[in-house]
């Protein structure tokens, strides 16, 4: 299972890539593979305020809808417009083309509550067992 080293993770299977004051948010390889073919992503609106570990988006497959929680608090500065026409990007490229949105980070210290790649890998291996 692909778990890039440069990202931080949540136990709800979201990832965040911090680039200075902004952060990219998406769902992990593990999440997309357990959801199956993704048919729709309901993204937050640009300008929306999201809170760490609180609901920020919904991702849907044919027979399931799952809530996605923000890994960090902040304000949504842009969303991945591609996903509305091509939700399958989340399946094919969860960490790159299939990102959900970009936020302006409110409180960088929140990242201490996230898992690093090794901790997340251990966590999902535990789930599989």
């Amino acid at each position: 299972m692909n778990v890039p080293q440069n990202l931080l993770y949540t136990k709800e299977h979201e990832w965040v890539r911090i680039e200075g004051k902004i952060a990219y948010i998406g769902i992990t390889e593990y999440a997309q593979s357990s959801l199956g073919d993704i048919t729709f992503v309901d993204l937050p609106k640009k300008g929306a305020v999201v809170e760490q570990f609180k609901f920020c988006a919904t991702v849907e497959s044919v027979k399931a809808a799952s809530d996605v929680y923000a890994p960090l608090s902040g304000t949504v500065t842009s969303i991945n417009e591609e996903l509305s026409a091509h939700p399958e990007l989340v399946n094919h490229s969860p960490y790159e083309q299939g990102y959900f949105c970009v936020i302006e980070i409110k409180d960088a210290s929140e990242k201490t509550k996230l898992l690093n790649a090794d901790a997340y890998r251990t966590y999902i291996e535990g789930l599989a067992a």
Binding site: T39, F40, A64
Partner: peptide, 12 residues
């Protein structure tokens, strides 16, 4: 588009 419906989304 069944994810809108009660048998999947229940209270939502």
């Amino acid at each position: 588009l069944q994810t809108r419906e009660q048998h999947i989304r229940r209270e939502k």
